[in-house]
């Protein structure tokens, strides 16, 4: 081989692969609208993206798995948390976390209500991007489930048993129940521990503050899932202005039989 030949090798292969790369890039532009639901890029979403960049969120967090590793991934956070919780969190992260307990705390970025709405719109749009199944299992902000039965998150339930299906669903994202509720005694995440919920549900019905329509523990749990704000569990960080931080869209997100499975599973937690 001579130097002339190797130079030709260098120039030729560079040109060839650059042309292929640009060709594929053009095709990507053709498909990207569908893959990212670009028609949903409303002015609010675009404004949210600007806030995301201005406030440098990416140098603590990852989004689509890219960014910094100091804070949790936010790709699916809108799905997992819902707007009510996120608004309160972004207004004041120290409502929910403290440096003493969690070692890390997101600083208060002094976001206005408008900016918070825009950010949530942006994060909601991101959560719908077709990421080819990434993350393969739910990435949660906190929660370890010590003592909980070990069904691995995201694993397909093997039987048709509604309880097993319900438990698997409980650990999937969405609906990400397990990101907010531990099933271990006394472990409070965003929501209360659901250990012993079947027993506690019956007591809730006797609570004089209870205003819902449920007559049985089963109905109470169903109601808690479908209309969280109808009765708000007492606690300093569960709701703001009477509105529960639990998402209120599960009636649309889940099918009726999935709700049945969740209820069946929760009824086993005595």
């Amino acid at each position: 081989m001579t130097k002339r030949q190797t130079r030709l090798f260098f120039l030729g292969s560079t040109l060839l692969f650059a042309v292929i790369f640009i060709g594929l890039t053009l095709d990507t532009h053709r498909q990207i609208t569908a893959l990212t639901h670009a028609e949903q890029l409303t002015p609010e979403v675009l404004a949210g993206k600007r806030v995301w960049h201005e406030k440098n969120c990416t140098n603590c967090h990852t989004l689509l798995g890219e960014g910094a590793y100091y804070a949790p991934d936010l790709t699916k956070i809108a799905d997992q948390r819902g707007a009510a919780y996120l608004s309160q969190f972004l207004k004041n992260p120290s409502t929910f976390y403290s440096e003493e307990k969690d070692r890390r705390l997101m600083p208060n970025l002094n976001l206005g209500d408008e900016q918070i709405r825009q950010l949530i719109a942006f994060l909601t749009w991101v959560s719908h991007i077709d990421t080819d199944g990434w993350p393969p299992r739910p990435l949660l902000v906190s929660g370890t489930f010590p003592g909980a039965r070990t069904v691995r998150a995201g694993q397909e339930a093997v039987s048709n048993d509604p309880v097993a299906l319900g438990e698997a669903l409980f650990r999937q994202s969405p609906p990400a129940c397990s990101g907010c509720h531990s099933t271990a005694e006394g472990v409070q995440l965003v929501g209360p521990s659901l250990a012993g919920i079947a027993t506690r549900a019956a007591e809730r019905l006797k609570d004089p503050a209870y205003r819902g329509q449920a007559k049985t523990a089963e109905e109470y749990i169903r109601e808690s899932i479908l209309a969280p704000s109808l009765f708000v569990v007492p606690g300093a960080t569960f709701a703001a202005a009477g509105r529960s931080f639990m998402p209120d869209n599960f009636d649309r997100l889940l099918q009726a039989n999935q709700i049945d499975q969740l209820v069946a599973y929760l009824m086993t937690l005595k």
Partner: peptide
Amino acid sequence: GLTFISGILGTAHHYYWIGVP
């Protein structure tokens, strides 16, 4: 030459999960 043969299309190792084809 090897750098570009592998590296140009290798860019796609960052395109696995971001919403492209």
